[in-house]
Write a protein that binds this DNA or RNA. Structure first.
Lengths: 217, 217
DNA sequence: TGAAATTTTTAGATTAGTCTAAATTATTTA
DNA sequence: TAAATAATTTAGACTAATCTAAAAATTTCA
């Protein structure tokens, strides 16, 4: 097994590579709030374990096995986020740090059962995709409600605005993660949207529609 | 906050004190699979933090604040065990090591919400009591089904036998944790017991009745 | 293209937690 | 009650992960 520090480095390298196209010593240091010299030390260790490709002064990339581990950590992080929001009623802007701790519990069986318990969600509450146990992402992208057409149906899967006021509003409207909604009308004048939710009609503004992510069923 | 190692020492000291009446350097070492000299080092550190009362060569006891921390860890451990068995369908003999990892996630909010999510269980799947958020144990003791009288009702709260064969048997009979059962008959000849469970009658042997723990409602 | 600026690595130190081996204190028992 | 035995502590060393300061490599661009 890998230490907590090693896991955090692998995850940071993964995210930097995906988001910025490459991971440098300095960028890793700043994303982990540490010093470049510490990063160099750790890179050597990860290279020794064949988890990264590392040539001094030339930057790093994950090997296949390093990426596999990173995807496992991301899977755990996002499943716990989903659990915290969906089952324990946390707001989605409250769960990141907690999931950061929980992601390091490494039992495969635990994670697979948690996944099953929650019905195999495909996206975390922020709308980010949850890799399956082989590290593959679902191919279905999330879509903003504001981009849906009339009569389209989807499952609320995430939000783009994580402000307390927005989340409280959604709560009050019972627009919670996992709900199935159908777009019944789009008002041309102000681009506001009417939704069918549990056989009730709900009217939301363009701004709200622009911050709710839905998945195709 | 305390480190993982510190938490494990506090928990070990708590258990040794409760079970054996006192915690010695050697007993702590053997319960944590470490060496006596390591224990001495840690005892000094815990004493500096005022978590234990420690006089060299004289043994240790927890201070009030040390005990509070230990009870918090035990609360987390037992709540996670309950979660794993009750929600994720683990067998109760599979959950100890996993809970040992999970107990170190220290968010108070997480634990309180988990407690609420599960309906404030009073005992873990082994029948051990779960301290509340102030560190107090419920006063109601668990009782063996074999010790119940006719017409008594209780909630299945734990088992004494953790063998796979026993747990599989219980599963098949749908005698799972959280179920409400009523003793409808006790056969004098072989001390076997008839239970009412979800409006169905179930007949179990004396041996089985002697390994199921129930709580008064 | 070559000096200046930036990035990265090395050297050497620190802390937490652990270890072995030796020394010290407590306990047992002859 | 004084060895002998057992328990505990100290001394000194190791590893993982980090740090600061200095050195080396790479990039930038005048």
């Amino acid at each position: 097994m890998n230490t907590l520090a090693e896991e955090n480095y692998l995850k940071a390298i993964y995210h930097l590579t995906v988001n910025d196209g490459n991971a440098s010593t300095n960028s890793i240091a700043s994303s982990l709030n540490t010093k470049a010299s510490s990063v160099t030390d750790m890179l050597k260790k990860l290279a020794d374990k064949a988890l990264i490709n590392y040539i001094p002064y030339q930057g790093v990339s994950l090997t296949t096995s390093g990426e596999k581990i990173a995807l496992g950590i991301i899977r755990r992080h996002r499943l716990w986020e989903y659990f915290l929001v969906e089952k324990l009623n946390f707001k989605c802007d409250e769960v990141h740090d907690l999931a950061e701790e929980m992601e390091h519990i490494s039992s495969q069986q635990l994670i697979d059962r948690l996944d099953e318990f929650m019905g195999y969600p495909k996206h975390d509450p922020h709308g980010d995709p949850i890799p399956d146990c082989d590290g593959n992402f679902s191919s279905d992208e999330l879509k903003l409600v504001s981009a849906a057409l009339i009569n389209q149906t989807g499952v609320i899967s995430g939000v783009r605005d994580h402000s307390p006021s927005f989340l409280q509003y959604l709560d009050k409207q019972e627009l919670t993660i996992g709900c199935r909604v159908t777009v019944t009308d789009i008002i041309e004048y102000d681009h506001s949207v009417t939704l069918l939710l549990n056989n009730k009609k709900i009217h939301i503004s363009r701004e709200v529609a622009n911050n709710i992510l839905i998945a195709n069923e």
